[in-house]
């Protein structure tokens, strides 16, 4: 008589986490930083057509790294989520928090239930009327959400990038200073540097606050 091979739960989770982490961190990184003039989003991106940063709603934006097809599907779902909410209630009732929760549930369900976990890391951010009311949510490949920091690092070498941001970030950072900080956080000493994809959720903007910038400020 044969018994099914016993694999401890910890081992299964660990294997899936290793797989998902490797996939999510294989690509180039992205960073989201709250600054005085708004929330700055930047990503190393060699492609000009396949975006990593996107508008979601008036004050809400998205950044994703990892497998493009997977975070692109999340991005589109996020736009649908936000547009449906804004249509059913009002434009002011769309928040990053709600979307971060929906993403976390979705990514977590895929992590444990799907044949293969999602190889992505995404961030949802929202610009407020002042810097204290900005929100930056980081959702990792297993569905863990965190919003303690006024910045988020996706993919790449997160430890070093976090260190740069922790040392350089302060409240009231100007856009130019935030750009400098991002440039250091996303430095690529080993391989050839890819161009930056940059976007800004501009503070005190009526209506849609998301705009793409041609380069890091």
């Amino acid at each position: 008589m044969t018994y099914p091979l016993y694999v401890p739960q910890e081992q299964i989770i660990k294997d899936r986490a290793d797989f998902a982490r490797r996939g999510a961190h294989r690509g180039r990184p992205a960073v989201v930083v709250s600054a005085a003039d708004g929330v700055l989003l930047a990503a190393r991106n060699a492609s000009r057509a396949l975006h990593k940063l996107s508008e979601i709603y008036d004050k809400v934006a998205f950044a994703g790294v990892g497998k493009w097809s997977e975070f692109e599907a999340l991005r589109v779902a996020g736009i649908r989520y936000a547009d449906l909410r804004g249509y059913a209630y009002d434009r002011v009732d769309v928040s990053a928090r709600g979307l971060a929760g929906a993403y976390a549930q979705t990514v977590a369900a895929a992590f444990t239930g799907d044949p293969k976990p999602l190889e992505v890391e995404v961030a949802v951010c929202q610009v407020g009327s002042d810097q204290v009311s900005d929100a930056v949510f980081h959702i990792s490949f297993d569905g863990t959400v965190s919003d303690e920091l006024p910045w988020a690092v996706l993919g790449g070498a997160p430890v070093e990038a976090h260190q740069v941001l922790a040392e350089g970030w302060r409240s009231g950072l100007s856009l130019a200073e935030a750009g400098q900080l991002v440039r250091r956080a996303l430095a690529e000493p080993i391989r050839a540097e890819a161009a930056f994809e940059v976007a800004l959720l501009r503070r005190h903007q009526l209506g849609r606050a998301f705009q793409r910038l041609p380069e890091l400020p």
């Binding site: 649908r80 249509y87 929906a102 979705t106």
Partner: peptide, 19 residues
């Protein structure tokens, strides 16, 4: 708060079709 249903991930770019 619930996970996004499969309908959120189907192809298309029309909001009305989605609704």
């Amino acid at each position: 708060m619930s996970a996004l249903t499969p309908g959120y991930f189907s192809p298309g770019n029309s909001f009305i079709d989605f609704l």
